[in-house]
Structures are given as C-alpha cells and as structure tokens.
Computed example of a mutant assay.
Amino acid sequence: MHVVPLPALADNYIWLLHDDEGNALVVDPGEATPVEAALRARKLALRAILLTHHHNDHIGGAAALREVYDVPVYAPDDERIAVATHRVKDGDTFELRDPSAHFQVMAVPGHTLSHIVYVGEGVLLCGDTLFSLGCGRLFEGTPAQMLSSLQRLASLPGNTRVCCGHEYTAANGRFAQTVEPNNTALQHRIAEVARLRAAHQPSVPVTLSSELACNPFLRVHSDAVIQWCHQHGAANDPVARFAALRSAKDAFQA
C-alpha cells in the first residue's frame, strides 16, 4: 500500500492510500481539489473516504468528493459529520476490497470527544490526536482523556507509520527542545525535519518508535520530562504532567 500526504489548506495533510491496481482511499479531505488532482495525476479510482473527526479542515471536501465518486464515507458517530455513510466506533474493524485494506478503529477522545483513528496496513491515521513531536489541543476532552488516548497509540508496534493531519513538526520540535534539551534522538529528529522542510518535503510519516524517543507528550514517565514538570509544579501525577506540558505548549511562542 502506497501512502501519500497531500498538502491542503494552510498546513493540513490529506492522506491518500492506494494500491498498484489503481484503487485509492483518502483520509480527512479538508478540501476536494488536491484529492481530485492527485487521482487524475496518478490515474487512481477513489473507493472510500475515512474521517477522524468533525472539524471542517478535515471533512470540508468530503461531500464534494462523494457527489462525484459515490463512495462510502467512514466516520465516528457524530451528528456534526452529516456526510457519513458508515458510522464506526472503538473496536470496530472493517475491510475494503478495493484497495484491499483492513482497518481497526480506536476511539481517542481529547482533541474532540468523538475523535477516532484508523490503524491498518502498517499506518496510524491519527487526525489531530498525535502529531510528530506533539499532540492536538484539547478542544473538548480532558487531559486525562487525551493522555489515555495517547498511551493507547503508544502501545502500537514501533514500526507503525504515524500519519497525522498537519505539518506542525518544526514548531513542535522547538517546544520539545525546551522540555528535553539533552535528548539526542530529538536533536537528530529536529535536524532531519529541517532538511526535509528546506527541500519542501513533508516531515511525516514518521515511525512511532521515533515519536516514543522524541515526543514529550508520549514521554511523561521519562526522567527528563518529570524533571521539567517538577520545575513547573506538576511532577507527581502523569495526568498533571501531561496537563502542564499541554498548557505550556498552548502558550509557547518561538
């Protein structure tokens, strides 16, 4: 299965997955035009649309695509996603014949209460829950919910490719460096991202093992993150440590 990030809007990625026979699916099409252009350029047939949450920059193009291609739309059970044809929930699995793909659904409340991710074909299609070197803002959920969601994702195989919804990695890296300035793996990842972005290349997908080594929001039990949290008055409880990290990131400017 080929995995292609399609830049959209200001800094979104729409994820295009396709096989060698020309069958494709898209994840979180915030707009239709990049998808249609990619399908034409690669001579692909759209077979399904997968949605992770209700924000318009992730679903804004789904209705227009479905009008043209008449394909199933998988989405969480959220009335704010009117375009859905198949409602899926935590623990569901489903298979697509064209392209041949099998996905598991995981509920990951935090960014929104109904946010889901899709895991399959060696990829984690995670919307705005997990970013490279960061995580999503808490618009509807609690720190405890988001930390639990991230810990579920952290338990996936290390070679899983993380396919997130935005190109935030460089900015996330600047914050992560303030938390773990001596993290060698983080320093290498920041340098890698700088090279990729200078060449106008996406910084994702990235392996989950890389994120486990570099992303402070997945490292609330590491000594360096605990030390940083202690300096910010939140050392004893993992949820409090996560909340302190998220609050600091919300206010971070660099």
Rank of each mutant, 00 (worst) to 15 (best):
2 H>K: 12
4 V>P: 00
7 P>D: 13
9 L>M: 13
10 A>C: 00
12 N>V: 00
12 N>S: 06
15 W>A: 11
15 W>M: 11
17 L>Y: 08
17 L>I: 13
18 H>C: 13
23 N>T: 06
24 A>G: 02
24 A>Y: 01
24 A>N: 03
26 V>H: 05
27 V>R: 03
27 V>C: 10
30 G>E: 05
32 A>W: 11
34 P>G: 10
38 A>C: 06
40 R>D: 14
42 R>W: 08
42 R>P: 00
45 A>W: 05
45 A>T: 15
46 L>N: 08
48 A>T: 11
48 A>C: 08
49 I>T: 07
49 I>D: 04
52 T>Y: 08
59 I>F: 00
59 I>T: 15
60 G>S: 11
62 A>P: 02
66 R>C: 10
66 R>N: 14
67 E>D: 13
72 P>Y: 14
72 P>L: 12
74 Y>I: 07
77 D>R: 12
81 I>P: 04
82 A>K: 15
83 V>H: 06
84 A>W: 05
88 V>H: 04
89 K>N: 10
90 D>A: 14
90 D>Q: 08
98 D>E: 15
100 S>F: 03
100 S>G: 00
100 S>M: 04
102 H>S: 15
104 Q>A: 14
105 V>D: 10
106 M>D: 09
108 V>F: 07
110 G>R: 09
111 H>T: 13
113 L>R: 14
114 S>G: 05
115 H>D: 10
117 V>N: 03
117 V>T: 11
118 Y>I: 05
119 V>I: 12
119 V>N: 03
122 G>I: 08
122 G>Q: 08
122 G>C: 10
125 L>W: 03
126 C>I: 05
126 C>D: 13
128 D>Q: 14
130 L>M: 10
133 L>A: 07
134 G>W: 08
135 C>W: 06
136 G>V: 11
140 E>I: 00
141 G>T: 10
142 T>C: 02
143 P>Y: 13
144 A>L: 07
146 M>Q: 15
147 L>T: 06
147 L>D: 07
149 S>A: 15
155 S>P: 04
158 G>S: 09
160 T>P: 02
160 T>C: 07
162 V>P: 09
163 C>A: 03
163 C>D: 04
167 E>K: 04
169 T>D: 09
171 A>E: 11
172 N>R: 01
172 N>M: 04
173 G>F: 02
175 F>C: 01
176 A>T: 10
178 T>L: 00
182 N>K: 09
182 N>P: 00
185 A>S: 10
187 Q>R: 13
193 V>T: 10
199 A>C: 05
200 H>G: 03
200 H>K: 14
207 T>R: 09
208 L>D: 06
210 S>N: 09
211 E>L: 15
212 L>P: 06
213 A>D: 10
214 C>L: 10
214 C>G: 09
217 F>C: 07
217 F>E: 07
218 L>K: 06
219 R>S: 01
227 Q>E: 15
228 W>T: 11
228 W>I: 09
229 C>T: 05
231 Q>M: 07
232 H>L: 01
234 A>H: 13
234 A>M: 09
235 A>D: 14
236 N>E: 15
236 N>K: 12
243 A>S: 12
244 A>E: 08
244 A>K: 13
245 L>I: 07
246 R>S: 15
246 R>E: 14
250 D>C: 07
251 A>M: 06
252 F>M: 01
